[in-house]
């Protein structure tokens, strides 16, 4: 019973953080800040939701599989964000601070 309540709490918090991330995706002004918003959903929301699901299992093989999903995601999502930011930087996208500085064209 306690486990189920805890799991519900985790799942709801995870859903909330997912929404936070996607709202940030709409709200933030430039590309690099949007990556930060997306990384909220990638890290904390994934952790919370997977742990919420683990608390609903009988802690056997299913829980181990969930843990594997979590590890995969925690390994791959920063790599993906880094690759994205790096190729955006090499593709010539400027950060907000650089856009506000003298240069006025570029970056929509």
């Amino acid at each position: 019973m306690i486990l189920e309540t805890l799991s519900t709490l985790f799942l709801v918090l995870g859903a909330f953080f997912s929404f936070t991330g996607v709202i940030g995706l709409f709200k933030f002004p430039d590309f690099f800040t949007r990556v930060h918003a997306a990384s909220v959903t990638d890290s904390i929301a994934t952790i919370l939701i997977i742990f919420g699901l683990i608390l609903r299992t009988d802690f056997g093989l299913v829980a181990v599989k969930l843990l594997f999903i979590l590890i995969f995601m925690l390994l791959t999502s920063p790599t993906a964000s880094h690759a994205l930011a790096k190729s955006a930087r090499h593709g010539g996208l400027l950060t907000l601070a650089e856009t506000r500085a003298p240069k006025k064209e570029d970056n929509d």
């Binding site: 990384s39 909220v40 890290s43 904390i44 999502s77 920063p78 790599t79 880094h82 930011a85 930087r89």
Partner: peptide, 16 residues
């Protein structure tokens, strides 16, 4: 180190 920086929200390693 770079992966940890990216994994924590709010900081992002752009280039290394």
């Amino acid at each position: 180190y770079a992966n940890s920086i990216t994994l924590t929200p709010g900081t992002l390693s752009v280039d290394i």
